[in-house]
Nucleic acid binder design. Structure first.
Lengths: 157, 157
DNA sequence: ATTGATTCGTTGGTTGAGCCAACGATCTTT
DNA sequence: AAAGATCGTTGGCTCAACCAACGAATCAAT
């Protein structure tokens, strides 16, 4: 364990210590992102969980609810509720897994794909608005650094 | 308004679209940061609001509750509750502002400063753990980029 | 083959951060 | 003097995230 004061001393100084604190900056920018996304989603009558589920589903292909939950970072119980909502509009389908009686295989429907494309557009607009202060290179760098911090691609199944 | 598809096309590709989405990466890393901080704080019998208030107070010097709330991004009502909790342990003091009957001037006490130093150590450890995958240069760059995205230093009073 | 552990979907919760509305009191603006 | 803004305070609300427990099904290990 490195001495706790080492990092802060090497950080850019500000009149206000919070403004140089990575966790604080993360919290603030994530909060802003969340606000923008929320607005965009409920202007479309959707919620964040819907997008995460649909996007993960199209990427995964037909998958069990448990797999879907892992991929979209949704608790099992939240997957249940989310899928129930998506099923109302026939955006997803559930069938029993013939090879494993515990599982249900979830698939995105063509209506779901259409819906996902709508939401993708709105989500892309939010990225644009959020990253407006950054150049193209800076955006790519930010994504790379955040990926490392978030532990993406660092072997979870 | 830029076409929504422009950004995503210029982004690094991943097998899973969420993993290339800035808002998603922000949410994930912020979530991880929040979890680490929460654990650190309640191992010390504190909460995030306490640290934010104490840190902002030491930086600001004696300040009104409204000013404190703006600086620490706390709602007025949350400032009230937080200060009440801090006052129990005499970490802050409140006096009426002689120049403005609406205001109360809040000051951090020496006990508050001692407490803040404890929490600062724990917070620094969390930064270290969170940023472990990054080099020193990368950490500085991440802070810079997040500052821009969060709109820090972009003129709020 | 039976037992023990694990996984799956589901139900029914809890927590905490972030807000919002409204109020009386006080200041500021006109 | 009147109208509007700001202050601290009370009492709420929402939503993302998470947890515990359950019966059913599967898997692992003897």
């Amino acid at each position: 364990m490195v001495s706790p004061t080492v990092l802060l001393d090497s950080l850019p100084m500000s009149a206000y210590r919070l403004d140089a604190l990575p966790t604080w900056l993360l919290s603030r920018s994530s909060g802003r992102a969340h606000r923008l996304l929320s607005d965009a989603f409920d202007a479309a009558g959707a919620r964040g969980y819907h997008y995460r589920a649909l996007a993960a589903l199209e990427d995964l292909g037909p998958a069990s609810q448990a797999m879907l939950g892992r991929r979209a970072a949704l608790d099992r119980s939240d997957v249940v509720a989310t899928l129930a909502e998506l099923e109302v509009d026939a955006l997803v389908e559930r069938t029993l897994d013939p090879d494993d009686g515990r599982r249900k295989i979830v698939s995105i429907t063509s209506a779901g794909r259409r819906r996902l494309r709508q939401l993708d557009d709105r989500v892309a607009s939010v990225q644009e608005e959020l990253l407006a202060p950054l150049s193209t290179d800076e955006r790519a760098e930010l994504i790379r650094l955040l990926g490392a911090v978030a532990g993406i691609g660092a072997g979870e199944d």
